[in-house]
């Protein structure tokens, strides 16, 4: 994996071709036609047989051309929690003057999707793959496949692996009471209340939000998923600390901490993260949450 590049251009050596089963049937048709032509000594029958045979041969070039010099490059992949589906986005770029039709993206034997790529254009394909473990997960190897234009031959690429990784956060543990260590600062100590009762507004639903806070009435009206936010007058500052979870194994601790990060973020707290040899200072907001979750995801893994 270390040798993989961020993009791959399909050259002649990466592409293979074989007849499809319709191609085999077509060959059978040609044999029948040739026998008829020979037997009847029929010039036009010979001509038709050879024309169809030549057509199949010419279609080889078209099939080859349909994948030749196609550029595959890694796109984005939004971080997901272990156990969810990671969606790897890949970009197929066509730098030639001819459009590419019916290019199928295969994972193993399974066709994921089939796209057309305009001349001097590109197409993005999303390859979902289950997120198994926290940390960086490489995109699965894919092959490209096409039967264009006649379906008599198919061309496929070698397995393409390239540097395309998705960050997998630890799987959040079941909701666990927050055992936060209050900050040393006075204002943090002054508000020990976890969460608030006052409804302060709504925001877009995010994975990990508690279903209890979803604005179900709005969903029923057909509006987008919104989450009701509750908060107290003041923001609470908490430390989510590895050491409070002594007694649990590493993965469990990470899971619980992940849950707490989500809870804290959801409840609008200011939260910091303390891990052995790592500290994230209290803050809040999406980037902060991502930073914390990333630390948890990569904790103890070799860079």
């Amino acid at each position: 994996m270390s040798t993989a590049a961020a993009e791959v251009v399909l050259g002649r050596r990466q592409l293979f071709m074989l007849p499809t089963r319709f191609g085999m049937l077509f060959a059978l048709l040609l044999v029948v036609q040739l026998l008829a032509a020979i037997n009847y000594g029929n010039g036009l029958a010979y001509a038709l047989t050879f024309l169809l045979g030549s057509l199949a041969v010419v279609s080889m070039l078209y099939t080859h051309r349909n994948l030749f010099r196609l550029r595959l490059s890694a796109g984005t992949c939004a971080p997901v929690f272990a156990g969810d589906m990671a969606v790897f986005r890949m970009r197929l770029t066509n730098e030639s003057n001819t459009p590419r039709y019916g290019v199928a993206l295969l994972h193993g034997k399974k066709e994921i999707t089939r796209v057309d790529i305009p001349a001097h254009g590109f197409a993005d394909v999303d390859l979902p793959a289950p997120a198994l473990k926290r940390g960086w997960q490489q995109a699965p190897a894919v092959t490209l496949h096409t039967e264009f234009p006649l379906g008599l031959l198919y061309s496929w690429s070698r397995r393409v692996e390239f540097d395309h990784a998705c960050l997998i956060y630890p799987r959040p543990a079941a909701p666990t009471p927050l055992q936060a260590l209050p900050m040393d600062s006075p204002e943090a100590v002054s508000g020990m209340k976890v969460g608030g009762e006052d409804y302060v507004g709504t925001r877009e639903f995010q994975p990990g939000d508690s279903p209890r806070h979803v604005d179900w009435k709005a969903v029923a009206r057909g509006e987008s998923w919104q989450v009701k936010q509750f908060g107290a007058g003041l923001q609470l500052t908490v430390w989510l600390d590895w050491d409070t979870l002594a007694g649990l194994d590493t993965e469990m601790r990470l899971s619980v901490l992940t849950r707490w990060v989500l809870e804290a973020q959801q409840q609008g707290m200011l939260y910091g993260l303390r891990l052995p040899q790592q500290t994230v200072h209290p803050s809040s907001g999406e980037p902060h949450q991502h930073e914390c979750l990333k630390r948890l995801a990569l904790f103890g893994l070799k860079p």
Partner: peptide
């Protein structure tokens, strides 16, 4: 494709 196939066809024919 057929036009491209014709020269091949003529050779074989």
């Amino acid at each position: 494709m057929l036009i491209k196939a014709v020269p091949l066809m003529i050779i074989v024919y």
